[in-house]
Computed example of a mutant assay.
Amino acid sequence: MAVLSPPKPAPDSQRTAKRIALNQRRGKWDVKLSPYLYISPFFILFAITGLFPLVYTAVVSVHQWHLLTGQGEFVGLQNYVDVFGQPNFWKSLRNTFSIFLLSSVPQVLIAIVLAALLDANIRAKTFWRMGVLLPYVVAPVAVGLIFGRLFADQYGLINEVLGYVGIEPVRWHADVLASHFAISTMVNFRWTGYNTLIFLAAMQAVPRELYEAAIIDGAGRLRQFVSVTIPQLRATIIFVVITSTIGGLQIFDEPRVFDPTGLGGADRQWMTITMFLYDIGWGNQKNFGRAAAVAWILFLIIIVIGMINFFITTKISSSDGAQAKAKARKNSRRAR
């Protein structure tokens, strides 16, 4: 009795099966690799324009490196020691923290309040939102020149107004605290509107059920803002605080153009760390090694303060957010 062998598949069906299997394997690899390919341009650009300069600056900071003669011998941490030994460094550090506190803290608070007002039912919302963002698109040099004239010591508009109400003229370019206040006013003018729109976008994403539950509980608008809106802005507040910290500690344009000389005042009373870095690298010293050391000191300061801000804001906002969610659940059950 003859044994019948199974029929062989046609060549076309074999090729079709192989093609399907190959497409399936390609599909698996595409699912695994495509997300990384989509985000790879950012990391490639970051490695070229961000990571490499950061590492190279660390190399420059441990060498003698003059603007004209180039790289010299290896000196280790001597550039850092030289920087710490200069009185202008400590002045610039004091000025940077002072201007940072006078600008960042009011900036975040005012931005949250303005965002709440823009989120309310007001007329011409688009007009007011564009008006809030307008200072951000103005060139920082133009803002610095305008405010430098407004805060002029002798013929400034601010002192003229103060004179009408019987207040002695303020020496905006001579007194330390007055100059810091004037520069922080410029920073707040430029960046408050930008942060306002960030907070506004976050407020519009807050679930309206939370406000309805708060209204049922008898909460007014102020209570809703404090107990519902603020806790729901947890991630946004952390983001704005960290970005404001990074930008505030690197402030350069406003103090640079606040005075025509651009040196931070006669006694360096408003010279910031970035201005001190510029003065060391391209000023009288022309020492790139010390300038790179200042850059790394500033980088470490930003990292430390940013982490402190992150942990503090996370702890505060998480506790407030948990309380608000628990209260909202309780109110929703009561409403049912």
Rank of each mutant, 00 (worst) to 15 (best):
M1E: 12
P6A: 11
P7R: 13
K8M: 09
P9W: 04
P9A: 07
P11M: 07
R15F: 08
R15K: 12
K18A: 08
K28A: 14
K32E: 12
S34K: 13
Y36A: 10
I39W: 08
S61Q: 02
H63G: 10
Q64Y: 03
H66A: 13
L68V: 14
Y80F: 14
P87K: 08
P87I: 09
K91R: 14
S103I: 01
V108R: 07
L109N: 08
I110S: 04
I112F: 14
L117Q: 07
N121M: 02
G131W: 06
L134Y: 13
P135Y: 05
P135C: 02
A139F: 15
V143E: 01
V143D: 01
L157C: 06
I158T: 12
W172K: 03
H173Q: 10
A178Y: 10
F181Q: 02
G193N: 03
A201I: 04
A202L: 09
A213I: 02
I230Q: 05
I238H: 03
G247V: 01
G247T: 04
G248N: 06
I251E: 12
I251Q: 15
E254T: 03
D267T: 15
F276L: 07
L277K: 04
G283C: 05
G283S: 02
N284T: 13
G289W: 03
A292P: 09
A293S: 10
G306W: 05
F310Y: 15
T314L: 08
I316H: 10
D320C: 05
A322H: 13
A324W: 12
N331R: 10
R336I: 11
